[in-house]
Design a protein around this nucleic acid. Structure first.
Lengths: 173, 173, 173, 173
DNA sequence: GATGAATGAGTTTTCATTCAT
DNA sequence: TATGAATGAAAACTCATTCAT
């Protein structure tokens, strides 16, 4: 990947996340990236190709984030680290994550498969801890974690730290 | 509101919810509504005016949904009915709700104030039931309910009925 | 057909015939027609739609030209009028015809069916006049007439009048 | 001429003949030739330079084809071999010839001078054979031969062999 | 109230050409 | 000689909006 290619990518991430995919023009991306508009098309074929590349990257980041949790054997730790996930997002990555959430709504067929491995790990963890409905607990927690992430990104949460402790207590982890 | 005006509105709701606001052209709306393109502008001034009208309607529907819960005095019932909210959405209204969720991401300042009254009611309910952190519990539940709605609209929930019972049990309501 | 629509069409005819279809930009057409570029697309969908409309018109003109010949019962007159065809083209229509010839080469599937009725008439005429291979004579003459048209449009013919007489003599009509 | 140069040339010939000169992009040529886009410009200066080279080659091929006819002293043989010309084109050379015909229409001043020597030979042949208007006969035959070539390249001729015999008979050669 | 022709600015995309390596 | 990244201008096409009827 050339330097300009990266500039395009990062400009696109910022703009897509700020304005949404279809409200962002390729000319705006080119300007922000400091490259000619044509270059976007040379490297990514078309506007959608650029988006796809960003999505692909996003999927890899998610995978990398989930990996250590999935590898974890201690069930309590699996739950604990899952809860901690949304609180660990750094402010400098907010743009990136906002984009991922936005795309979930903007794209027709945005894959929701990324979380499957985590769901399996959580189900197993809840089972080991003797929960009555481990599958539902896992599904429940994942939905919640995603919603929490959304709330954090939008600054809707009154007190992040407190909410985190509250949740860890709730699950006794 | 004339018949054509309604047709415009309902076509716009469907298209906005399917493709998003900025990916939907006024000409597509006019075609879907079976009216001339000019008419949209006669009635709603511009594309954004049409959107605002839809948002206004949405807010009213939300208010109407929350009203009976807020009026409820029995704290257990407040929680119960809050949990039941996302499960009561009729399939024929999915388009409408999908649009509301989409707009949350597409619009810069889509109001999140709509849920404030419910938050107050829930806080009070949790307090009455002796919960240790009623504010956090209320915030938590609202975030969860919204996430659940999202999951239901996207057909991500494996077993709606079971999840509902699971939640009611969890809150002992 | 509105006035502007006609202006677009006639500007397109001139420019396509002068520069060829793919070397003519829609913006050049719009400028020449004195309309906005967008109007071309509103009326004809896309550049090719505009071309198709021109082709359709061309086919009608050809049909109209051939009609009186096909209706002719006197075999000698059928041949005579066929030969005269290319010599009757008015200079003001050269643009139009040049375009038709150009398109034969520029379009993948330009229909050559237009001449079929004339071929049938000619075959019958040659048969009535006792020619030995009427089908070949008809095919031969049509190819020749088209080539002659081409030569005339390109001003390659040294002496049109003389050539016409020469041909009429050759066929004894 | 290097190997890559030849590849460019032959790719260009094919593409120009299939799509026309202005509808063929240099990038398409480069891709088809398996070379970098820059190389075209290194070797031929610009797109037109490439075209000119192709035209030059075409003119040489035409010259070479006409040479033996022009050298022919027997008038009957001059006519005979002229008639046979379009029937001798090998199918593998169709692309090449299609391109020559296409260019006649696409280029403003595509030279029609190539046939001049043949016209002189034919005029002289017809004169020797006592034809009344040898100049017209020569002009007539050349126009016809070109049209025949066109028809053959487009597969419009019902029966090539028969047409050839028919023509040879017509001219009694 | 309703139509649909028309616009102009903007969008995505293409393309011939240059240039550093 | 050869590559391929990069450009800038122009191409095709879209779209919100206006306006005469």
């Amino acid at each position: 990947m050339t330097e300009k290619q990266e500039k395009i990518l990062s400009a696109a991430k910022i703009l897509f996340s700020e304005r949404g995919y279809s409200s962002t023009s390729t000319s705006a991306i080119a300007k922000a990236a400091g490259v000619s508009e044509g270059l976007i098309f040379r490297h990514y074929g078309n506007k959608e190709g650029l988006l796809l590349e960003i999505i692909r990257e996003g999927e890899e980041v998610v995978k990398a984030m989930l990996f250590p949790i999935i590898m974890e054997s201690d069930p309590k730790k699996v739950i604990k680290r899952t809860i901690e996930l949304p609180f660990e997002v750094r402010e400098e990555d907010y743009d990136f994550w906002r984009l991922q959430f936005k795309l979930k709504w903007e794209l027709k067929n945005y894959s929701h498969e990324k979380m499957k491995p985590l769901e399996i790990s959580l189900t197993s963890a809840f089972k080991q801890l003797g929960y009555r409905s481990p599958e539902l607990e896992a599904e429940y927690l994942i939905i919640y974690i995603e919603a929490l992430g959304e709330a954090i990104l939008k600054n809707l949460l009154h007190d992040k730290q407190n909410m985190k402790l509250f949740l860890l207590q709730k699950y006794n982890v």
